[in-house]
Design a protein around this nucleic acid. Structure first.
Lengths: 212, 212, 212, 212
DNA sequence: GACTAATCGAGACGGTACGTCTGGTCTTCCG
DNA sequence: CGGAAGACCAGACGTACCGTCTCGATTAGTC
């Protein structure tokens, strides 16, 4: 995932090739450790032990705990999908519940907040999070919006691409932010009722800001 | 703030009383250390040194880094205010910008996410965050809503107090969540433009979910 | 003149007088703690607790652990006696066994070596040990010698008092040193057999060094 | 000296081998610290610092202060030698002065008494002292005795090996005990005069206990 | 019968060292 | 050369004692 680009060129470097199994084992071990121990008690040595791997092998692939955890958790966000549920409201409700289900998983909730916290004082980590996690989610917003426009539920985007991006970003932050805040900060469940209330609020707002 | 309940009963416990100056010095030192070092590099020993206090004095009052930081940061949220800006839109925009300004402060942004991360696997910490931080903010939502109803911008609350609380919670999570997500996850500025866009979206939604 | 007398006896200083019971309780607690914990794990706080006394009360009377322990153990050496057993050989054998029995007691053996160790870098402690412990034992040697001379087993002392003191010191160090070394360093029992062997060796030597 | 047994089998355990230089540096640092600070103020952290080594490296090799100091001091006793001085009297006098000179060294006197004190409540430490220190000295007694017998100054040993061992032990405890007691407990110098007096006493005794 | 003055208990204080744990690096030998 | 093993340095962890201090509450003798 990290330096996978090079493998494509398949330059048969000299010496023993890196074990492909090790990568998978390490990431799995990281997720398991996150579930059991949480972020702060997770240690590199413990992950290495679980994966049946030497610590050196970890450090050869990742710069530290932060990077490792981002990669270990990123794959979880690949599971998010946006099947066509027939209407914009159904699509929004669906993605909200799906995202909430993801945040219920201990490895996801713990890791997500922790790496965001670290990223506040680490620009490189911020980029890594954006590319590995945020962008994967944002893509869903774009997809849902396009589908709604095709259905005629939303007007066509503005000609100005910048304006369009601005409103995409806004919607994304509102959805993701509300779910995360409800789930992790307010510590209350994101259930069907809440998802319906939220969707009504969001769709009402969307109609209001759309140009006639 | 923390164990202040007991002081009211003023039961003069035997032995030397705890230094009240130490508390203030420690919390101030904690905030200073957060700014300089960030969450992960902040150490109890360093805080003690800055505060001119022994490590034992810290541990006598707080169980660990998490608890200390929550208390140290909580006071920042007391600064949030909601002056009457004349209209609901102006009030929302104002509180969004104020909250965003708070999240710009390094001690706030780092600490907030970090303690939330830890709280995902620590129920006691979760409660402490709720009472020390979340509730302080939620109060603003209630206030703004009441004011808007007085102005006639929003209909009177439902007779059912549970329904009213449900929508208050929703609005709170949407506002706080969106600002936090924009600021810390998406890493983009919460400026006047964004605040205006967001306010239009939110107010449109509020109108839509209001009865009649 | 008159007032000076009283200060030695019971100078009635102003203020609340020190508790006489506390002294006894503290020394007893110290000995008990020595038996249970040994020297290095004995703490002032623990002794205070056992004695039902505050730490300040200890420090008001003794400067530290060393001084306290010397005083607590010193009384044990008062038990050493030298009844007239009829001959020099019987007297030596008796005192050797008595001293060995004292060193069997855990509080004595632990404390004696420990304070001697500390005294190697503490002149004041060295003096305290000499006056509180060593001199008490040395007195027995003088007594036994005088008795043997009265019996005619040993020749009268040299006219030169310095010469007499030199040989007293020598005998004392040989007896006490041998018993301590056998018991604590070689970790072997000082039983009747050993005492008899040692006595034969010593008396043989004494005869040899005595002036014809 | 400590775990040297295993090195003979030279089983090449996996992983990086322990630094042999570190061992020497640590023991030297321990002796230096003993001279400067004495036993009670010597700290593991300080020793580590002097040796240019991490604290973990100390604890990987020794269980604590006691074990470390025993090993650090043990080598000093290797310096004791018994050159043939021509007569038993000269040999005894020589070894007494040599031993006294050793006990003059601050690292030896402090450490020896301190570890003996600890050993009174620690059987494992007692064994370590016996094998590392006591046995090294006792060997000198055996050697000197054999030499005196060869010279005809002492009769041949008893046929019963146990009887021979008993008298060897006795002589050893008398010599070592007297020197230690004079030097450390009585706090008086072991000079040539004292050594001569003591030798006369001992040799007189030896003649007395020897079978005709 | 108040006023001193030193004591007592309790327990917090600034320090120092403890022994452990983790992070990240380096060194050895094996495949 | 990759990898497992484990030693290495650095330094934070939370705990335990140290010896001092600050409390309120006793106890005496002195006015």
């Amino acid at each position: 995932m990290v330096a996978a680009m090079q493998s494509r060129t398949s330059a048969p470097r000299p010496g023993r090739p890196r074990s492909v199994e090790a990568d998978a084992a390490i990431l799995a071990a990281t997720r398991a450790a996150l579930v059991e121990l949480g972020w702060s008690k997770l240690t590199m040595g413990d992950v290495a032990g679980r994966a049946g791997v030497a610590k050196t092998t970890l450090y050869r692939r990742w710069a530290g705990k932060n990077e490792l955890v981002v990669d270990a958790v990123a794959v979880l966000f690949d599971e998010l999908e946006l099947p066509d549920r027939g209407s914009l409201a159904a699509d929004v409700e669906g993605v909200v519940l799906e995202f909430a289900a993801l945040l219920e998983r201990p490895e996801a909730k713990t890791a997500l907040m922790a790496v965001v916290a670290e990223s506040t004082s680490d620009a490189a980590l911020r980029d890594r999070i954006r590319s590995s996690i945020v962008d994967r989610q944002k893509h869903l917003v774009m997809e849902g919006r396009a589908r709604a426009q095709a259905r005629g539920e939303l007007p066509a985007e503005s000609d100005d691409p910048e304006t369009a991006a601005r409103s995409s970003d806004l919607i994304f932050d509102v959805i993701a932010g509300a779910v995360v805040h409800r789930s992790l900060v307010s510590s209350k469940p994101v259930d069907t009722d809440w998802a319906r209330d939220f969707t009504r609020l969001l769709l009402g707002g969307l109609t209001a800001i759309s140009p006639t």
